[in-house]
């Protein structure tokens, strides 16, 4: 299969250098995005996001645990991502790949750095805090999993219910109020193919890209996380260009999750 990827890479690079994209989009247009919240009954929060043919699910579970010794009055946030082998011929079963770990860490950084969740409110009693598990499940891979996962996590957090507590224990299947969110964040990913910048790369474009950069943007129009990937480089002008575009695109994506 590798040789076919090579062939696709060549096709994409020649398309992009001719000013076209694999699916006839503008360089700074997202594919069609759909967001669906509350898709699972047994999780405290959940959402399914489709970005083009990529499909990513995020589920939020809330449990009880011990706080970290240096932060006794704060709840715990833990994010993981699984690139399920059914999602792509590129994914193998087994322990998480580097790609899965990077994806989880980018989503985690967006949520944590933007201080979306007030961790002090997750305190229950001495040595007892809420643990918020954010699980990202990639079900179909056609590129730009980062933005899809970021959207799914944000949408799932928005509809997360707090479990009911009785005698210091969770009452299964019963809820009390919602998880308080202080802010929201959207992530925006740009690929660089040759000398061209593209938002929301599809898988074929990712195969042909030299570098990629992701920006996490908060509702205060601040940047809360950045991740650059790949052996290629960006000029400083290019970086400020994508920052401007990300600020503009933020509204589009925020509306999609708020209205879902």
């Amino acid at each position: 299969m590798e040789i076919l990827d090579q062939l696709k890479r060549d096709t994409i690079q020649s398309l992009v250098s001719a000013g076209k994209r694999a699916d006839d989009r503008d360089n700074f247009s997202y594919r069609d995005i759909s967001v669906k919240k509350n898709i699972l009954e047994y999780s405290e929060g959940s959402a399914l996001v489709r970005v083009g043919k990529s499909q990513v699910l995020c589920a939020i579970k809330i449990g009880i645990g011990e706080p970290f010794p240096d932060r006794l009055d704060e709840g715990i946030l833990t994010t993981s991502a699984e690139l399920m082998p059914l999602a792509s011929y590129l994914f193998d079963p087994g322990p998480p790949s580097d790609e899965a770990i990077e994806l989880a860490r980018i989503v985690d950084r967006g949520v944590r750095a933007a201080e979306i969740i007030d961790v002090k409110k997750l305190y229950i009693s001495e040595n007892k805090v809420f643990v918020v598990y954010i699980d990202v499940y990639v079900m179909d891979h056609d590129g730009n999993l980062i933005d899809a996962a970021g959207l799914a996590a944000m949408a799932a957090l928005q509809c997360t219910r707090m479990p009911k507590i009785e005698n210091g224990q969770i009452v299964k299947g019963e809820y009390e109020g919602k998880l308080d969110l202080l802010k929201d964040v959207t992530t925006h990913t740009f690929a660089k193919v040759g000398n061209t910048l593209l938002i929301d790369p599809c898988l074929d474009e990712e195969k042909g890209m030299d570098a990629r950069v992701t920006l996490g943007i908060t509702d205060k129009n601040t940047i809360c996380a950045i991740q650059k990937w790949g052996s290629g480089s960006f000029s400083q002008d290019e970086l400020f260009q994508v920052i401007d575009i990300a600020f503009k695109k933020r509204k589009e994506l925020k509306e999609l999750i708020d209205n879902a």
Partner: peptide, 9 residues
């Protein structure tokens, strides 16, 4: 999946 049951993660 780790979130598949009504119980713990």
């Amino acid at each position: 999946s780790p979130f598949s049951s009504l119980g713990e993660h």
